[in-house]
Structures are given as structure tokens and as C-alpha cells.
Design a protein around this nucleic acid. Sequence first.
DNA 1: CATGGTTGTTTCAGTTAATGAAGTATTTCG
DNA 2: CGAAATACTTCATTAACTGAAACAACCATG
Lengths: 153, 153
Amino acid sequence: MGTLRSMVTPRTTPRRPDDLTLEVVDLIGSVVARYHEEYEEAAAGHTLTGAQARLLSLLSLEPLPMRKLAQRLKCEPSNVTGIVDRLESRGLVERRPDPADRRVKLAAATAEGRRVARSLQDSLRFAREPLAGLSEAERLALRDALRRMLREG
Amino acid sequence: MGTLRSMVTPRTTPRRPDDLTLEVVDLIGSVVARYHEEYEEAAAGHTLTGAQARLLSLLSLEPLPMRKLAQRLKCEPSNVTGIVDRLESRGLVERRPDPADRRVKLAAATAEGRRVARSLQDSLRFAREPLAGLSEAERLALRDALRRMLREG
DNA sequence: CATGGTTGTTTCAGTTAATGAAGTATTTCG
DNA sequence: CGAAATACTTCATTAACTGAAACAACCATG
């Protein structure tokens, strides 16, 4: 069906990605799936949900106001309230007043929270294993390609 | 960067990933985030949730029993029931009996469902844009690296 | 061929994530 | 000062997800 058309009108479809591009997109889809799988798995290993793990990771670096958390997680502030509530009830996160602005509440990881975040990072290190199959040169090429891909948009 | 360390202690840190690997992992994290963002966006453009879009995409290729859907989506069968319910109530999917086994119900995309799935694919094609910045040689190298990464595990 | 175990699906109860609309403080600025 | 904007919470609602229980149909095996 399509073969005849492509023989007759070889250059009328400028937007149609070539087979190589399609394959690469497909591969990226697989990498995305695998990354997610392992992330959720690592989180579950600490009895955390994905959203909780992501938020805790952010806070392990520095305390942040709720509104900033919402921005980083790309969700509504009211949603962050619940996630922080659950982490707080487990003693992994605490709320502090911001001395500079009494409206804002800073969410901060507790010592225990940081410990869990670190352990999470380590178990996620497992996600790096696939890279072990690549030579240094390949990893360099991969880095450059990914950098360029992300540079756009 | 990591060169000095690797010269001094070439075999004492077998598990600790080098800086290059860490950077690549980080870049993959960004690609994952971007991919998801665009996928959810494309789904939302059709008033579908991510889970619904994923399920519909699977069904656009071939009808599948509920249990197979659960396996593909890596979730419990009871969950699939709800997602299919919602898609069915919108006329995008239908349930048919499996002639070979009266226990199983095949979920199948309707004509409208296939149309939506195709349109979804097309808007997701936007996700391929980042690849446009790469030369053919780079895309080839990227493909090979990704293939090898996924080969393991 | 009966019957007991297994499989495929659904229902139900419960948790989490997420949004959007109010509502309450607090800050900022005309 | 007073009005508008900002930060957070609460509430109602929907979806995704899990695990347990129920039900029907399949399939062995004695």
C-alpha cells in the first residue's frame, strides 16, 4: 500500500521520520521504561512511592518552600501538602517557618530523611549498570549525543 | 577529570561509578523527564491520562486479554479493569468474548480508538524533534549505544 | 465423569496522587 | 491604610493502584 506511494512521491513527506530515527525513539522509550521501573523499585524498597522519593531527593540537597517544590515537581501546591504530610508523619521531612517570610513554610529533610535519600541514591545506582557494557569512548559519545538532544527545546 | 584518580587507584573502586558515568546517568534522567512530560502532554491533548494512553496504544496494534494488558503495563489485573472501563465508556475500547476461552475477555480498540491512538502517535512524534539536532552518524552511534545498554539485564 | 485446583476477570475497600476551588494568613504596594 | 498578590491549607472529586474475596470456566487426575 504505502510502498507504491513512496516510490512515486519520494520527497513529498519531509516530516516523516526515517527508520533510524524511529528506532532510536523506540530505544529511548525502552530506556525510559527501564529507568522508571528501577526508580519505582528502589523507592518501594524503602516503602516510598515514586512521588515521595522524588520529593525527598529534592529536599536532601536543601530545604525548599512548598511552592518551589510544586514548581520542581510540576504539580499543584495543594498536592505537595499531602506528599509532605505523609513524609512528615514518618519523620523523614519536617516543616520549618521561613524567618524571612512568615507565609512560607520550608520543607526540610530530617537526618533520617537524608539517610533514606542517600540509601535510595545508592540502590538507584543499580540503574547505572546498563552503562557498564559501554566502553569509555562509547559513554563519551553517548554523553555528547544526549547533551545535544537536550540542548534543543 | 577522573583520569588522575583512575591512574592512582586503578582497581580499588570497582563499584563506584566515575564522573562520566554519573553525568550520563544524569542526562538520561533528564531525557526520561522530558519524555514523560511530552507523553502526558500529548495524552492530555486528547483528554486521556497517561495510563489510558498507554493502554490504548497497546490495543491499537491488536486486541489483548485483560491479563496480558496487566502484564504489559506491569500492574494488577484489577487495575486494568478500571482503565478499560473508562476507555470503554468513551467508546474508544470494547470488550469481546474470546471464542477460544470463555473466561477471557479481549479488550480491543474501536475504530474511534484507533483513530485517537494514531493521532496520539503523531503528536508524540514531536518527541522526536530533539533527535533532529543529531547527524546521521550521531544517531547511528546513539542507536548502537542504546542497543548495547538494553542488551544487558 | 466428577471434583478439586487453577486461571481470568470483576468487585470492593483502602491508599496515594493529582486538580481546582475556597479559605486564612501575610506581605507588598499604590 | 487598604486592596491586590502570594503562600499555604482544606475540601471535594477523580484516577491509578493494590490486595482480598468472589465467581465462572477450564483442565487434570483419580
